[in-house]
């Protein structure tokens, strides 16, 4: 029994560390905003943006073996089943953590360029771009006079082939006078535009990582533009559910959802979870 308890606790402790992709349950926009409403874009206090490796668990195998449990008494049997459950969960988590650690190694050559991309710059340039192109009144310097505070937590995930970057931006919005009452919450995913250069690393790192910085800014701006439209309830939501395809990490990928917007470069879909995902149109036919 002591042996079982020892296994239980050691597995419990080692199994605590999980590596999961960002996740959030969406809350549909519950506010009526005027067309001239003022948004305040709040970004994390971290100076640098977060980059990680994009991981897939498609090839994770699980054991299919029979287990013989000790059955001296019912208590011993149940303790053995619980121990087995904890150990199995720990093994699963360890396996996922290893895959994430391995995926994160892809970021190593980019560390110096990533360190030059600052979250404040990302937000400032987004605000500039959106003011110019989409006539959105959005700011980063004064929270007091804003109608709505839009809090953003972006994470950039680089695919194994280094040609695609997926932005996952968690958004939480609340009014400045009632910060505890969330009026909108969602995940916005934006996949980077494709490029034809063969050596992805040289492409991104050219000019001290200027292309990496520019792509990050464009993806971030796209995510914020989608958020503002979703908060204002101006995205189309009447199209039929279907399976969309795109290319990521050299593979044809699929996402089930409804088309909500389309422009020259991209389409945006609402996924089954209610998240928004922006996919490059070019990636339909080329990687």
């Amino acid at each position: 029994m002591r042996f079982i308890l020892a296994i239980f606790f050691s597995a419990y402790i080692s199994g605590c560390s999980t590596s999961r992709s960002p996740y959030i349950t969406p809350i549909k926009s519950q506010i009526n905003l005027q067309s001239d409403s003022d948004f305040y874009l709040k970004i994390p206090s971290d100076i640098h943006v977060t980059f990680r490796g994009l991981v897939s668990y498609d090839d994770v195998e699980g054991g299919q073996y029979n287990m013989l449990y000790p059955g001296d008494t019912a208590a011993v049997f149940f303790a053995a089943v619980i121990t087995h459950s904890v150990v199995a969960e720990s093994v699963k988590n360890t396996q996922k953590q290893k895959l994430q650690d391995l995926a994160d190694e892809i970021i190593l050559p980019y560390q110096s360029s990533i360190s030059r991309i600052k979250t404040q710059d990302l937000a400032n340039r987004t605000v500039q771009q959106l003011r110019q192109t989409r006539a959105i009144c959005i700011q980063t310097n004064s929270m007091e006079n804003s109608d709505l505070i839009v809090e953003s937590r972006p994470v950039f995930l680089m695919a194994k082939n280094e040609k695609n970057i997926l932005l996952k931006n968690i958004i939480i919005a609340y009014s400045s006078d009632k910060p505890s009452q969330v009026v909108y919450r969602n995940m916005i995913e934006v996949l980077s535009l494709p490029f034809s250069a063969r050596n992805a690393q040289s492409y991104w790192l050219e000019g001290n990582g200027a292309k990496l910085a520019r792509a990050s800014e464009e993806m971030y701006a796209e995510s914020i533009a989608l958020v503002i439209a979703d908060i204002k309830n101006t995205l189309a939501d009447s199209s039929k559910e279907k399976t969309f395809h795109y290319f990521q990490d050299g593979q044809k990928m699929y996402e089930r959802g409804r088309l909500v917007s389309e422009n020259n470069d991209r389409i945006a879909i609402r996924t089954l979870r209610g998240w928004l995902k922006s996919i490059p149109i070019q990636s339909k036919s080329k990687n």
Binding site: Y57, D58, V60, E61, G62, G63, Q64, Y65, N66, M67, Y69, V81, H84, S85, A88, V91, K92
Partner: peptide, 14 residues
């Protein structure tokens, strides 16, 4: 598809 070892799932469903 979800693999099991007797009573215990060994992998998340796919």
């Amino acid at each position: 598809h979800r693999t099991y070892s007797s009573y215990i799932p060994t992998r998340d469903p796919k």
